[in-house]
């Protein structure tokens, strides 16, 4: 039986049979991979701790017809600080869910993989209020459906942008405005995110613009996927 090696981030797991799980990974070379991890629900499983969602692993699988089978796994990164912090978890869950829905099986997705590992690492090391919004806009851009931020998405005029409409595909000028009204700082932030100034965008302190960016990016992803991101609307923090 043919085997393959790749890196991967565990996106989700579902129970299978008595003691197995189907693990969904995002890999750079093989896109989304769904593989059976045998016996991982047993206490003595050697793989269980390595196949938790949000783990970056290096793995080997047998290639199956529909589902592959995980044979060996080594952990690259557990993103431990995210796991231990209830406030960082919602963003991580939203990242995993969005990537799971956007990724395609068995097609190389190096850009999406880099974005996900980079996003989780940033969330771990230096969480920023603009991170989730920036991440979602960037994965849309990687998928080729990023929002128009430099000119009006409706008329193409290089005018002041005052609103965001995911149906039109980006920000709109005063004469074409539709969708949600946005602050000028949000437009600047979105331009930084998609214009190669990600570091500057992530350094932005928590503000109306960072909250707005997250809201708009979530709406844009949901419009593109034609379904709601469950984790984006379900904050696990009490109160």
């Amino acid at each position: 039986m043919a085997t393959f090696r790749d890196e991967g981030v565990v996106l989700r797991t579902i129970k299978l049979g008595e003691a197995d799980r189907i693990v969904t990974f995002l890999t750079p070379e093989h896109g989304k991979v769904r593989a059976v991890a045998k016996g991982v629900r047993k206490a003595k499983s050697r793989l269980a701790g390595r196949l938790e969602p949000m783990t970056h692993v290096s793995m080997m699988c047998w290639k199956g017809r529909e589902l592959d089978v995980v044979t060996q796994v080594e952990v690259v990164d557990h993103f431990r600080q995210v796991r231990l912090d209830l406030d960082r978890m919602p963003a991580a869950f939203t990242m995993l869910e969005a990537v799971d829905l956007l990724a395609v099986e068995r097609q190389p997705m190096p850009g999406l993989f880099r974005a996900l590992t980079g996003g989780l690492r940033t969330l771990c090391e230096d969480p920023s209020p603009a991170l989730l919004g920036a991440f979602l806009f960037r994965v849309l851009a990687i998928e080729g459906v990023g929002p128009v931020v430099d000119s009006c998405a409706a008329c193409g005029e290089d005018a002041d942008l005052v609103s965001f409409d995911e149906h039109v595909g980006g920000f709109c000028c005063r004469s074409c405005r539709s969708g949600t009204a946005v602050a000028p700082e949000t437009v600047v932030l979105a331009r930084q995110v998609l214009g190669g100034q990600l570091r500057a965008a992530l350094a932005t302190p928590s503000s109306r613009a960072t909250a707005e960016l997250e809201r708009l990016a979530t709406a844009a992803v949901e419009y593109h996927l034609d379904r709601r991101l469950r984790s984006a609307h379900l904050a696990p923090g009490p109160g």
Partner: peptide, 16 residues
């Protein structure tokens, strides 16, 4: 670690 387990095969998160 599970009783009767083996350190060599323990994953990093569990052993940590």
């Amino acid at each position: 670690l599970p009783v009767g387990g083996d350190l060599e095969y323990a994953d990093e998160l569990t052993l940590g």
